[in-house]
Structures are given as structure tokens and as C-alpha cells.
Design a binder for these strands. Structure first.
Lengths: 144, 144
DNA sequence: TAATATAATACGATATTCGTAATATTCAAA
DNA sequence: TTTGAATATTACGAATATCGTATTATATTA
């Protein structure tokens, strides 16, 4: 398989910078609404996808110290968006889940992401959208 | 122009989540090397692209308070990565530029982004890369 | 059963962000 | 040209976040 050219890489870098900006803006806006910081948002998104996960799971995934994650969980529990439970199977750990309020918050973020994605696809023709998604899918499958 | 379908939007959301993760990892890794936080990195990248810009320019772009930006500039100046100069034209403001050390740092980040982009394009065939970039270009042109 | 490993939390140190107030400079109008 | 308002930044203090170390509780292994 031949390598991508430098010019192709540069072109993609520029395009990607713009796209990620849209996502960041969407994320920041939604975070502002709920007065949540970036870490808390990411934690909510992870727990939504991995209900019952442990604090260590989230800390590893988000690459922050356990104590930092514990503090974030404190905040989210205090604000009634997350729940800690001691699973009988291993009572050292905690099982994290989202409350209805936490899930509603995640839904808001996902809606924001959805808007950003819609805005990205909008300029394409229907056939182009299909082709674009086929290619992104192919790329995403090779994820590390 | 017809709307993208919900399923297309969902598909793109998932793919995009993966891609942004790669970029975040690259960014975090490079930031770790230089002991810089996220804001400082973004400020370096902006000033590299807008040499001579003011603190206000950067603060507006990155959507942080002026005082926050001033603190970030303090850090970067102290570490010899950025310079403040009083332009004669308007001596209320400061003109920000990067030092050689700052530019070297930016080059490191760009290399990281480049690697991430290369990794994205790698799984595609040469013709697919051309088509993919044509489509991203079309999408990016409609940027808000 | 004792020793070790694992999972989370309490606490204190350091750093970051932001709002308010102060300073310096420019612009406009009387 | 002097006064007043607007602009750009900085100083300072309060609130908050992150992290490392030590501690507690539970599980695993010898």
C-alpha cells in the first residue's frame, strides 16, 4: 500500500482542525449549560457507554489520576448525575451508573455532536454522503 | 438539497469520536513532553499562525477570559516560548510572537497531528484518498 | 493465618481560571 | 487642548481542579 503524500496529510490536518473546532464549540456550549468541566463531561459519556464500570476504568481511559477521577465522581454524585454502588462481587470497587439527570445531560451532548455532524454532511450530495461514510468507516476500523 | 439521515449522522458521530481521540492522545503526549497545559498549547498554535496578534485576539479565539490568557502568556514568556512586545502603533496592546523554542514546540505538535492524519489515511487506497480529501474539502469550505 | 495486592478515598500542596479593580494608552468632543 | 469615555492589559484575590502520599477496606495468595 502506498503512503499518503505530505500534501494530502497537510490538507487533512487543516480540514480536521476546522471539524474538531466545531465539536469543541458544541461541547463547551453544552458544558456551560450544566456548569460542568471537560473531565466531568467525558466521564459522563464514558459511564453512559460502560454502565457499572469502576473508577479505575474511567481514570485509565481518560488518563487522569485516580484521585482526580474520584473528585470528579464526587462532583457528579453531589449533583445527582451519577451513582456509586458497591458491587457484592468485589466490594473494594465501585460500580458507576448514571442517574436520569446524568442521562439527560449526555443526551444533550449527543444532540450537540449530532448537530455538528449534520452540519458537516450538509454540503454533500446524497451519493457523496454515502461514499464519505464508507471511507470514514474504513478508516475508523483500523483504529489503534 | 436533501438532509442527511439520522443513521448517517450517528455513523459519523462514532467515527469522529475515534478520530478526535487520536488527536487528543497525540496532543496530550506532546504537551506532557513540554509540561504545557491544553490552553498554553492552543495559544502557541494560534500565535504561530497569527504572529503579532494581541492577547485579546487569542482570548476571543480560545474563548477564555482575558486574565486567563494573560496568565497563560506569563507562563509561556517565563519559559521562553513567547514574546510580548509593545507595538508603537497602539501601545495599549501587546504583539505576541513565538521564540525559536516556541516554534520548535509547535513543530512538534504539528508532527504529532501529521502522524495522526497519516494514520487516518493509511487504510485507504490512493484513489480513495483523493476522493476523501475532495469531500472533506467541500465540507470544510462550508465552515461557519 | 499472615503477607501482599488491589480499589478507592482523605487530605494537603500546587496550579489554574476567572472576576474586579487598577493602570496605561488612544480617541473624540467640547 | 483638556476632559471624558473607550480600549487593552495587568495585579490581586477567591474559588476550584489536579495530583501525590498516606490511609482504609477488601481480595488474593502463600
Amino acid at each position: 500500500m502506498t503512503e499518503p503524500t505530505q500534501s494530502q496529510i497537510d490538507q487533512l490536518t487543516i480540514a480536521f482542525e476546522r471539524f474538531t473546532r466545531r465539536f469543541k464549540v458544541a461541547e463547551a456550549g453544552a458544558a456551560m449549560e450544566h456548569n460542568l468541566n471537560a473531565l466531568d463531561v467525558q466521564a459522563l459519556l464514558f459511564v453512559e457507554d460502560h454502565p457499572g464500570c469502576s473508577l479505575g476504568d474511567v481514570a485509565r481511559y481518560l488518563q487522569v489520576a485516580m484521585t482526580t477521577m474520584s473528585s470528579a465522581a464526587d462532583r457528579l454524585v453531589r449533583r445527582d448525575m451519577m451513582e456509586r454502588q458497591r458491587p457484592e462481587a468485589n466490594r473494594r470497587s465501585v460500580a458507576l451508573t448514571l442517574t436520569a439527570k446524568g442521562k439527560a445531560s449526555v443526551a444533550g451532548y449527543m444532540a450537540g455532536y449530532g448537530d455538528a455532524c449534520r452540519a458537516m454532511l450538509d454540503p454533500l450530495d446524497p451519493e457523496e454522503r454515502i461514499e464519505f461514510l464508507r471511507l470514514t468507516d474504513k478508516m475508523a476500523k483500523y483504529d489503534i
